[in-house]
Design a protein around this nucleic acid. Structure first.
Lengths: 129, 129
DNA sequence: CGGCTGTATCGACATCTGTCGATACAGGAC
DNA sequence: GTCCTGTATCGACAGATGTCGATACAGCCG
């Protein structure tokens, strides 16, 4: 599975935090790890769940606040929340009857900085070709 | 492609460019549109392809530069490139024998800013509860 | 205690996704 | 023109994913 030599990029740092993927090629391990997070974001319901949680009063939301706005069943919401949690994007805690979820900002920040485009170096649009 | 018609949902601007999803809930249409982009990023091969293209000399890469580093077949690479293109993350052009791909920085920037976390407002750990 | 409500898990199902080999298409070389 | 190389499309397949209803678990209330 390991391809040829990729001297660049020890995947550790790319995984770690902040080198944009537009600067140097992602390694296999880093790509696998990041793909798992992006996959968690690749569903409209999960995207809206995450947004609802993050923008909720106090930065956290009870599951009871999350089932209302969607057309899908309660087990489906629960499943999506589990996917988000296992991707490391949110965490949760039971408090008495209710379970609360909140976003882990570091995870979002990691993905955000990874996607940062080089401000000036526009390729196809500009000089290229 | 751009966005489809927005039936309901308040935030056209969320689709447009830059309001982080942690500030206000995403609408259905915005979430569907964004999920399509994140889905394109949810595969390790595509993530590495995108990274390879973006970090390549001149900001663009020939397909012939992209088939080498992977263990998958050429049709599979072609398929992944198509997915990235249809998600609006890259564009391509044929120049004689070869086909070149480059990243569309605006698309990455849109996703990046969407994921930006509010730097200070940490939820579960802080004042909540 | 028993009953009630909120949440998670289970099992099943249809659909989507990644992959391949075979093949078609585009363009340069001869 | 014919051949060759680079890329895309096609058809098929196994496995993953989103969804549901049924059910189990957790904790409050009376």
């Amino acid at each position: 599975m390991s391809n040829l030599e990729l001297p660049v990029l020890g995947q550790d740092e790319a995984v770690a935090c902040c080198s944009p993927m537009v600067r140097e090629p992602l390694g296999e391990a880093a790509a696998t790890d990041l793909a798992r997070m992006f996959k968690a974001l690749s569903d409209p319901v999960r995207l809206r769940l995450l947004s609802l949680i993050a923008s909720h009063e106090g930065g956290e939301a009870c599951v009871c606040d999350l089932t209302g706005p969607f057309d899908v069943s309660q087990p489906t919401i629960s499943h999506h929340l589990k996917v988000l949690r296992e991707a490391g994007l949110v965490d949760s805690e039971r408090r008495g009857t209710w379970v609360y979820y909140w976003v882990l900002p570091a995870a979002l920040a990691r993905l955000s900085s990874l996607l940062e485009a080089p401000t000036g170096a526009v390729p196809g649009a500009g000089a290229a070709r």
